[in-house]
C-alpha cells in the first residue's frame, strides 16, 4: 500500500475541501471493505484518504416525504435489519442478505456498495478497467468466466453492486454532492459503461460524495434473486431485481433489472413490456426471462451466464409474486 495522508472531517463541507479535482488525488473512505483491498493491490494509490465516518448526518434510514432516505454511510446490516425496508422494499432486503459475510455487512456501507470498483481480475491485477494489453482485450482473449454477457465496447467487467439493480427497479434516486452543490440523479443513470481507462463505471466525479439514496414509496411487488455458487460469502454469477405494479392479478407495469451480467445494471425493457397485462406464472416468468436475455452476447467462456441470468429473472418474478421458487 502506498503511503497516504489521512483526513477525518466532521462535516461535509470540510470533506469537500479535501477532495481532489482529478481521480488519484483523494479517495473517499466509508467502510473500507473495498478501498483497502484496492490500495493494498496498488489499484488505487490515493495521496489522501478522506474518511466519512465522523460525518454523522450520513448514516441512518429515515422517512422522507412518502418514501425513505438512506444515508450513504448506512451499513449493509442496518439496511438489512430495517423493518420498513423489509416490508416495502424486500428486493433491497434480499440483496443485502446475499452479502453473506457478517463482517462485511457490519462494516460495508450502502454508498460504498454502489461506488465499489469492479472485481474483474484483470482490473484488480493492474491492467486497467478495460484491461487492454497491446491493443487487445485481455478479457475477450483470456478467462472471462465471470465477465459480462452484455458487454459495451471493451467494457467487459460486471457491475458488482447488488443494490444497484434493486434501486433501479424501485425507481430510486441518488444524491451526489460537492462544494458547488447537489444533484439528484436516477439510480439508472448513475451507472455507465466507460469507453476508456480514464473513465469510471459511474457518474461520480472526483470532487463529489454520494450522500444519500432516495426511495420513492411503492406498492409494487418487488424481489431480488441472485445466483451464487456458494452459500458462504461469494459473488453472484447473475442476478435480477424486479418491481411489479399489479392491477388485480395482472401486471400493469414491470421493471426487470439484470445484475452482474454487464458493466452496468441492465434494464430489460422488452421483458418488462412483455409482462404488461399478464399474470405471473411459472410459464410467463420463464418467457419473460427468455426475453430478458435475448440480446446477450456471451464471451468465449461465459455462455452459461445466459442461462443463469434467465433463471435469476424467472425466480425473481416468481418470488415477487409470492410463488415458490
Amino acid at each position: 500500500m502506498q503511503a497516504f495522508e489521512y483526513a477525518s472531517p466532521k462535516t461535509l463541507k470540510e470533506a469537500f475541501a479535501l477532495l481532489g479535482a482529478q481521480w488519484g488525488e483523494a479517495d473517499v473512505l466509508a467502510g473500507g471493505t473495498d478501498l483497502l483491498s484496492l490500495m493494498k493491490d496498488f489499484v488505487h494509490t490515493p495521496k489522501r484518504v478522506v474518511s466519512l465516518r465522523e460525518i454523522k448526518t450520513l448514516s441512518g434510514i429515515a422517512k422522507a416525504g412518502s418514501g425513505l432516505r438512506i444515508g450513504a454511510l448506512t451499513t449493509v446490516d442496518a439496511l438489512m435489519s430495517n423493518a420498513a425496508i423489509r416490508s416495502t422494499y424486500p428486493s433491497l432486503h434480499q440483496a443485502a442478505m446475499g452479502i453473506t459475510s457478517p463482517q462485511i455487512r457490519n462494516t460495508g456501507t450502502v454508498g460504498g456498495d454502489l461506488c465499489q470498483r469492479p472485481r474483474c481480475w484483470y482490473f484488480r491485477q493492474g491492467y486497467g478497467l478495460l484491461a487492454m494489453k497491446d491493443g487487445k482485450s485481455l478479457v475477450a482473449n483470456g478467462d472471462n468466466r465471470f465477465h459480462a454477457i452484455f458487454g459495451s465496447g471493451n467494457a467487459h467487467f460486471v457491475s458488482p453492486s447488488s443494490f444497484g439493480p434493486a434501486l433501479i427497479a424501485l425507481g430510486a434516486k441518488i444524491k451526489l454532492e460537492s462544494a458547488t452543490g447537489a444533484r439528484e440523479i436516477d439510480a439508472f443513470t448513475f451507472f455507465r459503461a466507460p469507453k476508456s481507462d480514464s473513465e469510471r463505471e459511474n457518474d461520480l466525479r472526483p470532487n463529489e460524495i454520494l450522500t444519500e439514496i432516495l426511495l420513492p414509496t411503492t406498492s409494487a411487488k418487488n424481489a431480488t434473486y441472485e445466483v451464487r455458487q456458494k452459500d458462504a460469502l461469494d459473488w453472484p454469477l447473475a442476478a435480477a431485481s424486479v418491481a411489479l405494479t399489479m392491477s388485480g392479478n395482472t401486471v400493469s407495469k414491470a421493471v426487470v433489472v439484470l445484475g452482474h451480467v454487464g458493466p452496468t445494471p441492465l434494464v430489460a425493457e422488452s421483458a418488462g413490456a412483455w409482462l404488461a397485462g399478464k399474470a405471473i406464472s411459472a410459464d410467463t416468468a420463464a418467457q419473460a426471462a427468455a426475453e430478458a436475455v435475448k440480446a446477450a452476447k456471451p464471451l468465449s467462456g461465459n455462455a452459461y451466464k445466459v442461462t443463469l441470468a434467465k433463471t435469476a429473472v424467472k425466480r425473481a418474478l416468481l418470488r415477487a409474486a409470492g410463488m415458490e421458487v
Binding site: 472485481r119 491492467y127 487487445k136 485481455l138 478467462d143
Partner: peptide, 15 residues
C-alpha cells in the same frame, strides 16, 4: 491461469 499474461488470475480467497 491466464494464457496471455501467464499469471494466476485468482491468487486470493475471493475467486
Amino acid at each position: 491461469m491466464d494464457a496471455v499474461t501467464g499469471r494466476v488470475l485468482n491468487p486470493d480467497m475471493e475467486f
